[in-house]
Write a protein that binds this DNA or RNA. Structure first.
Length: 549
RNA sequence: CGCGGGGUGGAGCAAUGGUAGCUCGUUGGGCUCAUAACCCAAAGGUUGCUGGUUCAAGUCCAGCCCCCGCAACCA
């Protein structure tokens, strides 16, 4: 049986349509999910929408719609957006789903039964516009700092979650599992918060109706955060389908934005402990996207619609550029200029052009078929050495011989053969730009290799490999095609639509399936296959056309 | 005020205390298989400031300056 892998994004808040920041998280998580799938895991990838809370209710009221109807529409917008971005989620969980209601109530009951919920009351300065409490020092002359209206002293009867009790168990758990909170900067942050003391938190609201009723007290609804986190359980069947649930829980990773790490690294694990469930193995709080140094902000109005970028540049280029620079742990800057630059330099010039020029040469020098590599017999032997791919290049004597006469060919092969472990390591560290850089290093090397071996003159001279009756140009072309095949495979998690396009031009059937690591071994490209050169993968974008009026 | 993240060649980013690298851009040259693409070379940095520790500091310590985020809609 395959090993399971359960991965989630944060569910999207239904008060506005998704912007590029949401897309960033969805795409990054999708890349991880896809990589796990091709490397043989049984993956569940869950995402969804967070639909309760007074903000959502207020937004619906503004639009003169019942909250449920409004949320139905938003959930559709989210799903359409993720599909347009080619996000391969398995579950889309809505917090207004019946199954989620059941899960949330069940968790509250369990935590209650454990004695970690008690009735109490909450009071403080309350702004009717933000529907939020403030502490005295936050107010400016008794006025709400955001709305400038008078705050009122309000007192509410609420249920409280005994969060304070969990400081010690949390610290113990983190000590035992230091990888629980990633990256380190988030870890430090969370440790600071825990060490400075945890207070019990109010987990019910009586002021609104839009939410999940508190078990046995329908006057109250469950506070959104407390309830929303439970989506990670309801998405995989809790509490109805415990078989599926038990297969996939605990989550292997929650991918979230750095701003909500305290909820995921403190409240959430405490809730799970209280309810007697295992904790997720890891929470990764990624950095934010800034647009030309500025924070994305609805009030600033600089939100970039991911769908517009997809329309202008294509899904795969968008996905690529989003993850090809910066680092996922820290913040990263993005601009449409960067989009165009990286599209042109990496996709059009480096990779697209490599495919194009290679296929042209195969047509001219090899009659449009994948040439036979020298001593195909030995190549088969090499595939059997697949258990140690990093040793492949050393084994057969033929290659040692070749190395003497054609050192460039061997250098290229070595790079290609070492790809898998390096790529996998980068993915393990959530280093997307690093993983792509590793692949692009091979692409660049292949372009250089063409220059150094100049197949056009090998062909004109009919040059043979030293000591063999074998046209050197065929070796060069085979190596290039093999590099392209590997590149196509490795970029699949990032650019799932591009892989089949490359393979098709190389003569594969459209439905060609592959898996790692087997298909990443050198020499899997069958010779004799007729190539089918097509249109350039990524035609260059002319700068002038881009800069909008 | 508090907490957190940063300040590295024109731009965006890297560097277990040990010759400061990468991508893009710029300049010059080369090639002709290719999407005016590709390859080579060069220019461009006293790593925010000031002290300190060390044989050795972008990296550690102290102080200061500046930018950004959280706290307060937004991954």
């Amino acid at each position: 049986m395959k090993e399971k892998y359960y991965i989630t994004t944060a569910i999207t808040y239904a008060n506005a349509k998704p912007h590029i920041g949401h897309a960033y998280e969805e795409i990054a998580t999708d890349v991880l999910a896809r990589w796990r799938r091709v490397t043989g895991y049984d993956v569940q990838f869950a995402t969804g929408s967070d639909e309760h809370s007074s903000n959502v209710e207020a937004r619906a009221r503004e639009l003169n719609q019942p909250p449920q109807e409004y949320c139905d529409r938003m959930a559709e917008v989210f799903q359409n957006t993720w599909q347009a971005l080619n996000v391969s989620y398995d579950q889309f969980i809505r917090t207004s789903d019946k199954r989620h209601h059941q899960a949330a109530k069940e968790i509250v009951r369990r935590v209650q039964a454990a004695g970690d919920i008690y009735p109490g009351h909450y009071e403080g300065w309350y702004c009717n516009s933000c529907e939020n409490y403030y502490i005295e020092t936050e107010l400016k002359d008794g006025l709400c700092p955001t709305h400038g209206i008078k705050a009122v002293w309000l007192s509410e009867e609420n249920y409280f979650f005994r969060l304070s009790r969990f400081a010690r168990p949390l610290l113990e758990h983190i000590a035992k599992h230091p990888e629980f909170i990633q990256p380190v900067s988030r870890y430090n942050e969370v440790m600071n918060i825990i060490n400075s003391g945890l207070k019990d938190i109010s987990i019910s609201r009586a002021s609104t109706q839009w939410g999940i009723p508190f078990p046995d007290d329908p006057e109250h609804i469950i506070y959104v955060w407390f309830e929303a986190l439970i989506n990670y359980l309801s998405a995989i069947g809790f509490p109805d389908d415990m078989e599926t649930f038990n297969r996939f829980w605990p989550a292997d990773i929650h991918v979230i934005g750095k701003d909500i790490s305290r909820f995921h690294c403190i409240i959430w694990p405490a809730m799970l402990m209280a309810a007697g469930l295992d904790l997720p193995k890891q929470v990764f709080g990624h950095g934010f996207i800034h647009l030309k140094g500025e924070k994305i902000s609805k009030t600033r109005g600089n939100v970039l619609d991911p769908l517009e970028l997809v329309r202008a540049y294509g899904v795969d280029p968008f996905r690529y550029v989003l993850l090809a620079s910066g680092n996922f742990a820290g913040d990263r800057d993005f601009s449409e200029e960067e989009m165009v630059e990286r599209y042109n330099s990496d996709l059009a010039n480096d990779m697209g052009n490599l495919l194009n020029r290679t296929l042209t040469m195969v047509e001219k020098y090899c009659e449009g078929r994948v040439p036979k590599p020298p001593e195909a017999k030995d190549l088969t032997v090499m595939s059997d050495l697949s258990m140690m791919p990093e040793l492949q290049w050393r084994m057969p004597e033929i290659w040692e011989e070749l190395e003497k006469s054609t050192p460039q060919d061997m250098t290229l092969r070595k790079t290609a053969v070492n790809l898998y472990s390096m790529f996998d390591q980068a993915m393990e560290k959530m280093d997307f730009s690093g993983a792509l850089a590793i692949v692009w290093n091979l692409v660049k090397q292949a372009n250089k290799y063409i220059e150094e071996s100049s197949p056009w003159s090998l062909f004109k001279q009919g040059k043979k490999i030293e000591g063999h009756d074998y046209d050197h140009v065929n070796l060069v072309m085979y190596n290039l095609l093999e590099v392209l095949r590997l590149v196509a495979l490795y970029i699949h998690p990032f650019m799932p639509g591009t892989t089949p396009r490359i393979l098709a031009q190389m003569g594969y059937a459209p439905e060609q399936k592959f898996e790692f690591p087997e298909d990443s071994y050198w020499g899997r490209l069958p010779s004799g296959q007729k190539i089918a050169k097509g249109e350039p993968l990524f035609p260059r974008i002319e700068r002038d056309k881009v800069l909008k009026p």
